[in-house]
Amino acid sequence: MTASTRTLVTGATGTVGSTVVRALRAAGRPTYSVSRGGTEGTHHFVWRMGEEEPPAELRGSWDAIVHCVADTRFGLPDGDAEEANVRPLRAALSLAGPDTHFVHLSSSFVTGLEGDITSPSRDAYRNSYEWSKATAERLVHAERDNADIVRFPIVVGARADGSLDRYSGFFWLPAAMCNGAVPALVAEEKGLLDMVSTDDIAAHVTRLLDSGPPRGHRLSVLGRGDDAQRVGEAFDTVLDALNDWRAENGVTPLDRLPYVTPQQWNRFYLPFAEEYLDRMQLLKVTAFRAYQGYLSVTDPFDVTVRVPDTRDVLYRSIRRWAKTHETSARRVPRPWRA
């Protein structure tokens, strides 16, 4: 790396992108950033990627581009998911020259139901998020002779204190446990729930950029693999973190929710319950159905970069969520009644 090296990070105010920007700047790499909203500042620009032309300051040669833009909502219509996860990538690729080190951040779940990204069929994926992220990976292969693709599973906060710039995705869990959004945990209790810290992703991206562009397409898969927490262990960690925080703040502790396997829930419980649930209860149950597949993973990811243990990171992240979302964390769930 030289003093004149220029790096651009997209999605720079997101959960992962913000940490990547801080890590690269801390490493002494001149880093520019871009996001859809917010306030422009020194080396930071607002750009609705894929919807408008880039600011003049972003045109020209880039030594490296780290593409972090992602909308992780599972329930988006296909067209909206494509606009959120594919069109911004096209815009980022348009800024890259032949010598640009391009790093695309993806997802461990991108292989969908068939175990790879080759199928363009929507039916090969659990949801529009997976399908759009697979489309994005295929686009990188088609448009670039060389690039780094980085996949990672569920993201939690910083290793030191669990902090995140934005709590999204997995953090539906503590909110749901506090507000009583679901009557049971529809999951495989012995399944694997792989997680990484934002620090793990940022450190790996920094190493990739320091090593220089790959000769072809280089895939990194971050995670714990067969050392990942079991679903039951992870949920117990979440419950312990919430109840420790609630005890310190004089709030009634939460009860441990029962486990129901997805097969039991969908075949027996839900068809019976639907007749008796009110509209709001049905909306909650339907919304959380999208997470069943991710809480029922029994085969570990084939990781190429094994990150340190994440149990304590999950505990710190949930406590940090409670501290920054105190109103939600103080709620007392009401029992479900027909």
Rank of each mutant, 00 (worst) to 15 (best):
V307Q: 06
A241Y: 04
T252W: 09
F288A: 12
P300Q: 02
N243C: 07
L282R: 14
F288S: 11
T198C: 13
A273S: 11
P258L: 10
L277Y: 06
D240Q: 04
A234Q: 03
P183R: 05
G250I: 09
V297G: 00
T261P: 15
R246Y: 02
G180L: 12
V196S: 04
S220Y: 14
L242K: 02
R306T: 13
R289F: 15
R207E: 15
E233R: 11
P253R: 10
R218G: 04
L270D: 02
G191A: 04
A247W: 00
L254T: 06
A202E: 08
V251H: 05
A228H: 08
Y259D: 07
T286G: 09
R256Y: 04
T298C: 11
T252L: 11
A290H: 14
Y294E: 06
P271V: 09
A203V: 08
Y269V: 14
A203G: 05
L295K: 00
V307K: 07
A203K: 13
R218A: 15
T298F: 13
A290Y: 11
S296G: 01
M195W: 10
F272N: 02
V305N: 11
L254S: 07
T198G: 14
G225W: 03
F288E: 14
E233V: 12
Y294L: 08
L209N: 08
D227L: 13
L209G: 08
T237C: 09
R215K: 12
M195C: 15
V231F: 04
N249L: 09
A228S: 14
A184E: 00
T304G: 12
T286P: 02
K190I: 00
P253E: 04
T286L: 15
D299A: 10
M280K: 14
R224I: 08
V238D: 01
L282Y: 00
L208E: 04
D226C: 00
E274Y: 12
P253V: 10
L242H: 06
D194L: 00
D255P: 06
P183D: 00
P253A: 12
R267Q: 10
D194S: 04
D255H: 06
P258M: 07
A202Y: 15
D199M: 07
F235P: 02
W265A: 03
S296C: 05
L270H: 01
N243I: 01
A273H: 05
A181S: 11
N266I: 04
A241G: 03
L270G: 00
R207V: 10
V182P: 05
L257G: 00
Q292T: 01
D244W: 07
P300D: 02
V238S: 12
G225N: 07
